[in-house]
Design a protein around this nucleic acid. Structure first.
Lengths: 111, 111
DNA sequence: TCGGAAATAAACCATTTGTTTAATTAACCT
DNA sequence: AGGTTAATTAAACAAATGGTTTATTTCCGA
């Protein structure tokens, strides 16, 4: 799978509040599907599908433990996204610097 | 619009290779819709729609210049995404550190 | 003022996404 | 073995997405 494909998968997996909330929960540690589903008003199959989407994007792995499927957070795709976004950092930094310069001007001229 | 809504919009706008390519092009500077559309095999209206999606996500602004609409990159949503993803940095950092420790062990014990 | 280029709007179609309910598989526990 | 719990699969469906073609608007330039 190309980087482009991985970014597609990661970005679209993250483009849903329920899926982001699942990742937030997983930041605290492994959890079963039912545990992950509990906070939501959705049906279990719906959550199960969201989990599948996260898994396909590499943001989550599943481990079988008796009747449970323990889910773990995988951060690699997040690193990849940050890496991608950071290519634009010079631009937003430039803007910030410009604003900074403006503030300096205001200080110097007293308006 | 809540942070969650903004993240929804930004992540799903970025979940398409054509839209990411448009942003890449805009990193070089302002461009008209036709200029942005040129590299793609799609119809112009299709590209126009992608631009609209980016605009709605706040990743792009349009400025009227005679018969042209000049598009500019806006980085604020990218900063917000990086900010969001960095909440997970302790986790991937921990992993990295663990691996690093492992490498140290290998060095020390000579295997 | 007319012809042409830039861009959007409108109408439409195919595919994907997000959800539900119902059925199924698999493992535990007594 | 039988019953319960965990989870996935299947089937159905509405809404959103990504694309097309055609029509319309708006502005420049000869």
């Amino acid at each position: 799978m190309s980087e482009d494909d991985r970014l597609d998968a990661a970005f679209s997996a993250l483009a849903h509040p329920v899926r982001r909330a699942i990742l937030t929960r997983l930041a605290e540690g492994k959890a079963s599907v039912n545990t992950l589903a509990a906070p939501f008003e959705m049906s279990l199959p719906a959550v199960s599908k969201h989990i599948r989407v996260l898994e396909n994007a590499g943001l989550l792995t599943r481990e079988k433990d008796a009747q449970f499927r323990l889910c773990s957070l995988e951060t690699r795709p997040l690193e990849e996204i940050v890496g991608w976004a950071n290519r634009y950092r010079p631009i937003w930094q430039a803007r910030f610097d410009a604003m900074d310069g403006l503030l300096d001007d205001i200080k110097e001229t007293g308006q």
